[in-house]
Design a protein around this nucleic acid. Structure first.
Lengths: 145, 145
DNA sequence: TTGCATCCGGTACTCAGGTCCGGGTTTACC
DNA sequence: GGTAAACCCGGACCTGAGTACCGGATGCAA
């Protein structure tokens, strides 16, 4: 059984136009067409869309997502996959570190309540949860997002 | 001692124009000016810039960052701060969860090496590290990024 | 077979986040 | 005091990621 564009879009929670857009960008395989030219998707398309959205939420660009999908597709013979995966791993781990720091600070801010924050604000140790991060971050990391 | 625009920009690893831009957006306080009108920053500006960049890397929008800075500035009397911090905490924790899942899968992919990946690719469990995420994700989370 | 929702391709628009330009000062250094 | 580098402002431009619109074609149900 095949799905039409807006069924897929609805199922994945995206705009119908986004399907065409992703197809243009090579993120979504061009589906079969009906005799009249309408796109006919399978359920896999929905999964792919969700995958893309998930990856995006984590800060991967569409190009990066395209890469990862690509890499998953043309299997073993491209062993740069290992390298890519390793790179991503490093990125992901750095992100986790950062987020954990933020979390710690947010928790502290919440636990301390407004009174301590007051004191804190006057002594310039706010903007709240980010100060540590700023120090930790290497300056050369010229935001490749 | 005061710093000039490009010194600050260089120190923080951003474009000089970005300073003006952030000033317009209210993210960076308008600095003092020289008699001739040139901006004269202090070292704090560099820290603030790094803070902003750090927050951005974690997926906060400039508006959100502005919020957080704002909130840190006008201290206790605005007790919605607690609420905001709590909200952010939830977001941050969700992000961490997602990233940990990704990390797990990336590690597995790396550990398995290309051979297993090969097998994997043919059985449709690739694109590598995102499938689980796709299932876990509630469809209604219509990416508010 | 008619009617209406849906889809088509192409193009234009939006929004965030910057970045670049250009003509005219201002500073810093010799 | 001269001059090159840095800076000013306003506005145009750019990229990424979608979204909207259009006139015409298609799908499907009654």
């Amino acid at each position: 059984m095949s799905l039409r564009a807006s069924q897929v879009a609805d199922a994945a929670g995206v705009n119908r136009e986004t399907l065409r857009y992703y197809e243009r960008r090579g993120l979504l395989a061009a589906p079969d067409r009906s005799p009249g030219g309408h796109r006919m998707y399978d359920e896999q398309a929905v999964v792919t869309l969700r995958v893309i959205k998930a990856a995006q939420r984590l800060g991967f660009t569409l190009d990066e997502v395209a890469d990862l999908i690509e890499v998953g597709r043309r299997r073993g013979r491209d062993s740069s996959l290992q390298a890519r995966a390793a790179e991503k791993l490093v990125e992901v781990e750095a992100r986790i570190e950062d987020l954990i720091l933020i979390r710690t600070n947010l928790r502290a801010a919440i636990a301390a309540g407004c009174d301590d924050l007051h004191q804190c604000a006057s002594s310039d140790c706010c903007p709240i949860p980010f100060v540590d991060l700023a120090d930790v971050t290497t300056p050369e990391r010229t935001s490749p997002r």
